Simulated assay, not measured.
Amino acid sequence: MIRALGLVALLLAAPAGNAQEVIADLDQTSVSIDSTFAGQEILVFGAFTADAPPDIVVTVAGPPEPATIRRKARRMGIWVNAAQAEVSAPAFYAVASTAPLDAILSPAADLRHAITLPHAVRSVAAGPGQSRSFVEALVRIRTASGAYRRDGEAVEVIGGRLFRTAIALPSDLTEGDYAARIFLLSEGAVIADYATALEVRKVGLERFLYRLAHDRPLVYGLMSLAIAIAAGWGAAGLFGLFRR
């Protein structure tokens, strides 16, 4: 953060010219998930230079993860899975901007930089045969669950050259490397952009169990089975004492 503040100071001190630049950072570059984690808010802030006041868009994307989307259809009076698509989509995606995206972002710029939710999902699609309906269904489901978010007026411009916005991270955050991107827009086009990273990691017992389940699944399964058996025996013994 100190490094970013120094770079912001240099950018603000630079003489005005034709260059259009943006620089940004996060108030923290890592998030730790433990048993008490109930969600967190990160601050994205920075500075910019532009010939005219630009619009600003900030996106935060989680690591891609596989997802299966199924379409149901009625066959002989029974609902069955008629079609499905396999995609790889961000586990989390948030978009914040100075104004509604429909008013400040052109379709061409959106397609090129994959800013809005449908394009962000398509940009990491697992195969070329993904139809729009499957992607829209995934976006709709994850938006309802809070994993995908969009706020059209959440970026605050301060003093004409500074900006800030807060991104809320959910309590069921997926571990991995997150990417924060900042775009300067003018007349619908991207005139400058910047990217930085956020590391999300499990710590403590959660970290141990997570690594054990992924690195040594057999040991994890046997340990889980042993704990379940011990808990069952313990509960049976406790109830037996109460009956006496």
Rank of each mutant, 00 (worst) to 15 (best):
L7G: 00
S88G: 00
F183R: 02
L26F: 09
H214P: 01
T98P: 04
L26N: 04
R74M: 08
L222W: 15
G221K: 14
I69L: 14
A73K: 06
M76L: 14
T49Q: 15
A4I: 14
A144K: 14
K72Q: 13
R207D: 15
E206W: 11
G46I: 03
A125D: 10
S171V: 05
P90K: 08
V57L: 09
G62N: 13
S123T: 12
E199Y: 11
R70C: 04
R243V: 07
A195C: 00
E175D: 10
G152C: 13
S133Y: 13
E206Y: 10
L184R: 01
V95W: 14
G188F: 04
W233G: 09
A213V: 01
L43K: 12
A99P: 09
I141Y: 13
Q28V: 05
Q40G: 01
D25K: 07
T116G: 06
P128N: 06
Q28E: 13
R243H: 12
A213C: 00
P15S: 08
D177A: 11
I115G: 04
Y194G: 00
T143R: 13
V124I: 00
A85E: 14
L238Y: 13
A16W: 14
F242W: 11
S224M: 13
L218T: 10
A236P: 01
I78M: 12
G204F: 10
A226H: 12
S224P: 02
G237Y: 04
A125G: 00
R207E: 14
D51E: 12
F239M: 08
V31C: 09
R132C: 00
A168M: 02
L101W: 12
T143P: 05
V58H: 05
T29R: 13
V135G: 06
G176H: 06
I182K: 01
G221N: 11
N81Y: 12
G6K: 07
V219S: 07
P63I: 03
D102W: 02
I115Y: 11
A168V: 08
V135S: 05
A38G: 08
V22D: 01
P107D: 09
A50Q: 11
R207G: 04
P66T: 06
L241G: 05
L5T: 10
P54N: 03
Y220R: 02
P128C: 00
A168N: 07
